[in-house]
Design a protein around this nucleic acid. Structure first.
Lengths: 343, 343
DNA sequence: CCTTTAATTTTACGCGCGTAAAATTTTTAT
DNA sequence: ATAAAAATTTTACGCGCGTAAAATTAAAGG
C-alpha cells in the first residue's frame, strides 16, 4: 500500500477529509456526528484502522470510560466467576473494565486504590478485603472516586453496596437441614477475614435460638486464603475428636466445605442424606466447584447474575447521575437453596 | 491544612523548590537524581502526597512500565493461579501489570490486543486461546508489541515461548500407571480448544507405541470452557457404556478428571489403587483443586513457580534488550509426578 | 586554587487529544 | 424563497507530562 502512515488523529482526520475535533467527537460518541460524516469516518477507519491514543484521550476527558474492578483474591473461583460476569456487562455497556487483584494483602489493596485514583475512572466496583482493609484509606478513596462496594460491606463507605443477604443464606440451609433431619452445627474459621462470615455466624445463632436449639460451633484455626486446605486440616482434627457429634454440619462457605468433604473421604466418613451415611454437610455460596464435590454439595447459591447486573446498574446510575446518588443505597439479594447429595 | 493544593507536577515541583523536569526524572527513576534532591522530593511527597497523572506520563514516555497479561479464561483456576504468581513478580520488579481475560472468545481476544496496542506496554505476556485465536491478528500484534507467549505455543509468533513440556507430563503418568498396574486409556475432548491437548495426545500415542500397547481413547463431545461439566457428562456416558474397559484412565487435564471423578462417585465406581477399587484415574496440570477431589487426584504438576519466573525473566530480557531478543526462544519445563490416592 | 570533565538541573518544545466558543452548514418555519 | 433556529463543524487553546539540548553545578585532577 502507498497509504500515508496515520500517526495521530490529525492525520486520520486529514485522510477522512474532516477536522480533528469532528473525529474526536465521533470517537467519544459516534451518534453525535451527522450520518454522512459518520459514514466517511467509518470508511476511512476500514482503510487505515487507526485507533486513538488511549492515554491522550483519558488525560483530558472529564470522565474516562474506565471502570476499576477490585477483588480481594482472584484465584478464588467465586470471585473469578462474579468478576467474569461483571466484566462482560461493562464491556456490553461500552465501558473499559480494568481488573485488579488485592492478593489478599492490605498493601496491595492500598496500591490498587492509588493506581485507580490516578486513572480517573468513571467508577470503581470494589470488593474489599474486609478485616484486613485499611479502612481510612478506603474511606478517603470513596470520597474522591465514585465507588460501589460489593460482596463485603464496609461501614458506610462508597455510594452503594450490592451483595447477598447472608441471613437468607443461613436461614434456608438451617431450616432445610432441621426440617429434613436435625439442626446443624456450624463449621467456620476462628478469625474469618470477611465480614460476611460474621453475619453468617450471627444468622446461625439467631436461627438456632428461634428453633430453641443450642448453637454448636466447630471453629478452626488458620489464616490466609487457602480455605480448602484450612477446612481439610480443621475437619481432620474435628473428625478425630468427634467434634461433629450431631451428624449435621453447616459450613460457613463452600471452600471450607470442599476441604471438609475431602477430609471425610480420607477418613472413610460417608457424607449424604441416606440412612447409610454418617454425616450431612451443607454450605453457602454455590462455588463453581460445589457441583463436582463427592458427594455434590448442598448449598445456598448467590444469584450471581442478579448481583452482577445490580452492581453494574448501580454504577450506571452513579455515572449518569453526574455527582452520584442522593444517598447511599444497600441492595441485598436472597439466596437460593440448591439441594444436592451431601445433605 | 493551609497547604496550597497540588494540581500537577508543576505545583509539586514548586513546593519542593525544584524544577518540574527534575521531579519528572525522580518519578521515572529515583536513583537518577542527587541524594539531596531526592530527600527534598520525598519530604515534600510526605507532606502533599502528590501522584503524577498516569495518562500524561504514559503518553510521552518512550516505554511505559505497563505489562499486559492476557489469559484465555480467568475463571479457570489454573490460569488464575499462574496469573497470580506472574502478577506478583511484575510488581516486585516495578512494573504495572494489567490483567485481561479473553473470556474464551475470539472477539474478546482481538479487542484486548487492540487495547494493549494503544497502551504501548513495555511487553505483553500472552496465553492465547489456541484453536479459536485469530492467528493473523496475533501475528500482526506480535510484530508491533514485544510479546512473550506462555501456556499455549502458537506457530512462531512472539519473541519467546515459555510453557510446560507436555511430553514430560504424559510420559511420567503413562510410565507410572503402566509400571504399577496397566497402561491407561486416554480420556479427552474430541475437539480440544488448546494446542497442549493435541501435544498430550501425541505424547500418549508415542508412549504407548514404545510400550507396544495399543493406544485406546475415550473421546467426548463438548465445547466451551466448562470442562468439569463436559468431563462429567462424557464420563457418565462412558461409564454406562463401560468404555473404560481397561480400568485405568489418563485424563488430558485435571478439569476433565474432576468431572470424571464426580461421575464415578455418582455411579458408585470406586476410584483408587487399592484392590477393592474399580478404576484408577490420573491426569495432568496439578490444578489447585486436584488436592481436594475424592479421592485426591494423582497428576503431573506444572512447575508454576519456574514457569512464572521464566516468563517474567524473559520479559525483562526483552525490555532491557531494547529491540528484543536476537532470535525466538522456547523454554519448556518438565512436569513433576504427584502421587495421590486416585491412581 | 584553577581547569577540565562529569553529573545534574533547567530551558524550551512537543506529544495527542478534549472542549468551549465561534463559524458554518443544514433544517424548519413562514 | 428566506429568515430563524438547530445541528454540526472548525478555530483556538490548554491539559500534564517527557525529553533533547543548553546551562549550571559538582567532582576530579594537577
Amino acid at each position: 500500500m502507498t497509504e500515508p502512515k496515520i500517526r495521530n488523529m490529525e492525520d486520520f482526520a486529514a485522510v477522512s477529509g474532516l477536522s480533528r475535533p469532528t473525529v474526536s467527537k465521533y470517537f467519544h460518541d459516534p451518534a453525535s456526528v451527522r450520518a454522512s460524516t459518520r459514514a466517511r469516518i467509518e470508511a476511512a477507519l476500514e482503510q487505515y484502522d487507526y485507533r486513538p491514543n488511549i492515554f491522550a484521550m483519558n488525560q483530558n476527558r472529564k470522565l474516562t470510560k474506565n471502570v476499576g474492578i477490585v477483588v480481594p483474591y482472584l484465584a478464588d473461583p467465586f470471585f473469578a466467576e462474579i468478576v467474569r460476569v461483571i466484566e462482560r456487562r461493562c464491556v456490553e455497556a461500552g465501558l473499559s473494565p480494568f481488573l485488579f487483584n488485592s492478593h489478599g494483602e492490605r498493601d496491595y489493596e492500598i496500591d490498587i486504590l492509588n493506581t485507580l485514583r490516578s486513572m480517573k475512572p468513571a467508577g470503581v466496583l470494589l470488593a474489599p478485603l474486609g478485616r484486613q482493609s485499611d479502612k481510612s484509606a478506603i474511606e478517603a478513596f470513596c470520597k474522591d472516586v465514585r465507588t460501589v462496594l460489593f460482596d463485603s460491606n464496609l461501614d458506610d463507605f462508597g455510594q452503594a453496596f450490592v451483595g447477598s443477604d447472608n441471613r437468607s443464606f443461613v436461614s434456608q440451609t438451617v431450616e432445610y437441614l432441621t426440617r429434613t433431619g436435625e439442626a446443624p452445627c456450624f463449621f467456620e474459621m476462628e478469625t474469618p477475614a470477611n465480614p460476611n462470615a460474621n453475619k453468617r455466624r450471627l444468622a446461625y445463632i439467631e436461627m438456632m435460638e428461634r428453633l430453641n436449639v443450642e448453637p454448636k460451633f466447630v471453629r478452626i484455626k488458620g489464616s490466609g486464603w487457602a480455605f480448602e486446605e484450612i477446612g481439610r486440616q480443621g475437619a481432620l482434627k474435628a473428625l478425630d475428636e468427634t467434634a461433629f457429634g450431631a451428624g449435621t454440619v453447616l459450613c460457613s462457605n463452600d471452600r471450607l466445605a470442599i476441604g471438609l468433604l475431602s477430609a471425610c473421604f480420607e477418613r472413610g466418613v460417608r457424607v449424604g442424606r441416606g440412612t447409610d451415611c454418617d454425616l450431612r454437610v451443607a454450605s453457602h455460596d454455590d462455588h463453581p466447584f460445589s457441583r463436582f464435590t463427592c458427594p455434590a454439595l448442598t448449598t445456598s447459591a448467590h444469584d450471581y447474575s442478579a448481583v452482577s447486573d445490580e452492581v453494574v446498574a448501580t454504577l450506571f446510575k452513579l455515572i449518569d447521575g453526574g455527582g452520584g446518588l442522593e444517598r447511599r443505597t444497600e441492595k441485598l439479594f436472597p439466596a437460593r437453596l440448591i439441594m444436592r447429595d451431601s445433605a
